[in-house]
Structure formats: structure tokens, C-alpha cells
Simulated assay, not measured.
Amino acid sequence: MKNIYKIYKQLMTDSMKTVIPVLLASTLLSACGGSSTDTTPVDGGPVIRGSKCLGTELGDKTSCVEINSRKAILYKEDNNEKEGIALFLHGSPGEASKVMGIFDAPMIASKQNLVAISPQGLDSTWGWLSNNTEINNDVSDVEYINELLTKVRAEHNVNSDKLYIFGYSAGGFMAYKLACVIPEQISAIVSLAGQYRGSLLACENNTPLAIHHFHSTSDKEVPYNGRTRTSIKSVDQTIQLWREKNACDESISSQEHIRVTSSSSKTVTSIYNNCLASVTLSKMADVPHEANYIGENLYQIYQSIFNN
């Protein structure tokens, strides 16, 4: 019994050596605000491990940006001057972190020396107020995004007004809304499985804007041919709208590209010629709406937008 008691006593002593520091560290972290709730780093400072933004745990290169009580996830590799902003717009239902993952936002930010930012939409049905209407056109989400971009440029060492918009599904609807309302502020948009929504007559501007649209004819959630009852235009109508705005001629060049998911077969890209700004359509084969996209493969297909 004495030997058993000695072993038990030694085990208790050794375990407390481990437990006490852990408890102390946990107490200090709690006192500093390091909980599992949303925490916004001050002045872009280091992120406390375990802090979250929009339900996503933040890493060393991410932070939470808040404006008008709305939050966005920001990714920035370092404090060097950045050459623009990449804006990522999620689908519905969707999350900021999901759309950043689909396009591989860190990869884009690294290759093009950009700040990546992904806000959360508030509309419960569409994610964003993306409908283009001729009367009472609601632009409150456009105004919010404008304020967010102004804040990011001012506080994160962005030395140009370049803006690249990446939208997925309902985020693609919103990308086209931005292309109609603030085209002069946008360098290019990439829309994946999300076309123009609303009245074509409501998009009155004639500012040329680079467009690269990805869509699968197998998409059942957001069909290639659109939906009349929900004001989603077909992909062909969407592309034609920007062919006219960008003064493209009738000729088309085609290229076959790599697949964009592990199970898709190929991607056929149509490039509309002699445009004031590029208009490109990539038809993906055998890709459902929800898919595990390969961000690097998508990038290889649309990367020419950065030359506009």
C-alpha cells in the first residue's frame, strides 16, 4: 500500500505541474478578451488565438473589419504597399470564408499583391440586395461596400484604386449589380455560377468593364438559362449585355482549358474579340452548382483579367 501511495502522490505532483500553467494561461487569455466570440484586432495588430470573425477562426494574416455594425474578413500577407483590393462576395446561403476558399483568396492576394476582403451580406433570401430595378433600385449594399473599400484603402496601405470582384452564385448577382452601379471603380469581375439579375434596362451605364463568367450547363440551382420568376437572366443575356457595353465585334475565339473540379471533364472558354474591355465566358462541363472547385485551376483560366 505504501508503494501505491507513493506512486499516486508522484503522479498528482507531476500532473499539477502541467495543469497549473495551463489554467493560468487560460485565465490571462480570458482577461485579455481571448474568447471564442468575434474579436476585432486593434489597428491591424496581432490576432489573439481563438478569436473569430463571422464565425471563422482568424489566423496570423487575417483580421476582422467592422463598419456600420457589419463585419468582413480581411486577409493581408504583410504590411508592404498593396496594388489593389480583391473583393469576394458569397452566395446565399453562404459565408465570407466559403467564397474565399472557393477562389483561394490567399493565393490571389499573394500572386497579385492585393488585400483580400470578404464581407457578409444581410439579405436572408438573396444574400445581397442584388436586383437591378428601374424604379426604387436599392443600392444600400453598394453604399456599404463602397464605405468598406474606402476604409480598407485608408488603413491597409493600398496604393492604387484597382478593384477585382469575385462573386459566387448570389455573390455573382451582386458583382453584376456593382458592375452596373459603380463600373468606373472596378477593374474586372469574375462571376462563378451567378449571372445578371433584374431588368436589363436598369443597367444604363456604358462604361466598359472586363468580365469573366464561369458557368456549367449542368447547374440546376442557378440554371444556365436563368429563371423568369426570380428575375435571373440567362448567361447568354448577361454576356450579350456586356458585349454591347464593351463594343465587342461578332467574332469569337475559343480555347479548351483544364477542368476546374476533380470530377469535371473540361472547360471551354469563349473570348469575344476586339472589345474595349475583355468579355470572356468559360463553360464548365459536368459541374454541379455546389462543387469542390480548384482555385488554382480557375485562376489559370481567368488570370488575364489582371492585364486589363
Rank of each mutant, 00 (worst) to 15 (best):
I4N: 04
E250P: 00
K283Y: 05
Y144K: 06
R259I: 04
L149V: 11
H90S: 06
Y176F: 13
D286Q: 13
G84H: 02
V42I: 14
Q303P: 01
G34N: 04
T207Y: 14
T238F: 01
H212A: 04
D236R: 03
I73W: 09
K162I: 00
L122Q: 15
L200D: 13
S234H: 11
G172A: 09
S253G: 01
G45R: 08
S304G: 14
K6G: 00
Y293E: 12
D38S: 13
E81T: 15
K245F: 05
N274V: 07
L87H: 05
D161N: 13
I108W: 12
Y196L: 05
L54I: 04
M100T: 11
F173I: 00
L148P: 02
I145A: 03
S253A: 11
R229P: 00
G295A: 12
L192M: 11
T267D: 02
N205F: 01
S92T: 15
W126V: 01
S264W: 11
V268F: 07
S265V: 15
I186M: 03
N132Y: 07
G127N: 07
L29R: 06
A96D: 04
Q303Y: 09
L276D: 10
V222N: 10
N307V: 05
V190F: 10
D60C: 01
M107V: 09
N80R: 12
N157A: 03
N274K: 06
S270Q: 14
Y164C: 08
T238I: 02
H215P: 02
Y299G: 02
G295Y: 14
G33M: 08
P41L: 03
D219T: 12
T150R: 02
A193C: 01
I73T: 09
E290N: 15
A277T: 15
V260E: 05
A285N: 09
G198K: 08
T217P: 05
G59T: 15
E134Y: 00
Y168N: 03
S110L: 02
S35V: 08
T27H: 05
L122G: 07
T27K: 09
K9Q: 12
Q10V: 12
L74W: 04
L148N: 11
C32Y: 12
E256L: 08
S270V: 02
A188M: 08
E143T: 13
H90D: 11
I271L: 05
V139C: 08
K71T: 06
V222P: 01
K233A: 06
D236H: 06
G44S: 04
Y144A: 03
C64E: 14
S69F: 14
I48H: 02
E57D: 08
G167L: 01
G101R: 02
S92L: 01
R259T: 12
S69I: 13
C203G: 02
A247Y: 03
P119H: 05
A179C: 03
T269V: 15
R70C: 00
